[in-house]
């Protein structure tokens, strides 16, 4: 029993760190709707997995990566605004996924995908999340300054020698992976809030990008650990409990506004 709890806690904690790491850029580059869209399309991966009777985790990862790449490419080639494109994609794929789920040979509880199902987390999730965390940390360490410059002004970054297109695509693919792996912990509908609430709260008392990242890492960790504890003690659903804690932390941080 303690081993299961340990696996769940460790996976949850790493999901927290991952979402904080990527979440700061979601906020800085105004991509929260993009995150939400990726999460919605992940449900299509779930539906396909159940239909084809293969482990849906891998199809979710594949779908998320494909969507990330497709949106990244389409955004530069269409006359539609990002807002429209993402809105269409998010809800059309959700609809298709729900229709496909009705054909699923096994009876599924859709709620576990929408709001997370922490008890389904196993050692393979722990391993996968750990690998992704390691990879993300290396990526950020290498491209942190590049990413900040891209966030400031893409053309300026390019003129100064940053491989803008490549780094931006890598960031988006990384975000796709983080969302795909977070679904078991917080679910499709709540992952965006885990991405944006901790950095938004940390913004209030940060004067540098690094302070904001550090604040986000701490706040996201508290949210996940607090949410899991509440779920354990009061039998709350884990995903929503995590987001409730994150929201509470955001509200507490409000009065501490600095420049």
């Amino acid at each position: 029993m303690t081993e299961i709890v340990l696996v769940i806690t460790a996976t949850g904690l790493m999901v927290a760190l991952l979402s904080a790491l990527l979440g700061v850029f979601v906020i800085w580059q105004k991509q929260s709707y993009f995150g939400a869209t990726l999460a919605h399309t992940a449900l299509l991966g779930v539906a396909l997995g159940l239909l084809l009777q293969v482990d849906w985790q891998w199809l979710v990862i594949a779908t998320a990566l494909f969507t990330g790449w497709a949106v990244h490419t389409l955004l530069h080639r269409t006359r539609l605004s990002a807002d429209t494109l993402l809105g269409m994609l998010a809800h059309s794929t959700l609809a298709v996924a729900l229709v496909l789920l009705s054909y699923s040979p096994v009876q599924v509880d859709i709620n576990s995908f929408l709001f997370g199902d922490i008890l389904s987390v196993g050692p393979s999730d722990l391993l996968l999340t750990a690998l992704l965390l390691l990879f993300s940390l290396l990526f950020m360490q290498r491209h942190w300054r590049h990413l900040l410059n891209i966030t400031l002004n893409e053309e300026l970054a390019f003129a100064e020698g940053v491989a803008v297109a490549r780094v931006r695509l890598q960031l988006i693919l990384l975000l796709s992976l983080v969302i795909a792996l977070s679904i078991k912990v917080v679910g499709v509908l709540l992952i965006t809030s885990l991405l944006i609430l901790p950095p938004a709260a940390a913004r209030h008392f940060s004067r540098t990008p690094e302070q904001m990242l550090l604040g986000s890492l701490v706040l996201a960790s508290i949210s996940v650990l607090g949410g899991l504890a509440l779920s354990w003690q009061l039998d709350w659903p884990a995903g929503p409990a995590i987001v409730v804690v994150a929201t509470a932390l955001f509200l507490i941080a409000l009065p501490f506004r600095r420049a």
Partner: peptide, 20 residues
């Protein structure tokens, strides 16, 4: 290359001093 764009479009959500 040193480049000075027309505008920066800096979003205040990214905390940055001028020095940084």
């Amino acid at each position: 290359i040193g480049y000075m764009p027309q505008k920066l479009h800096h979003d205040p959500s990214l905390p940055l001093t001028t020095a940084r």
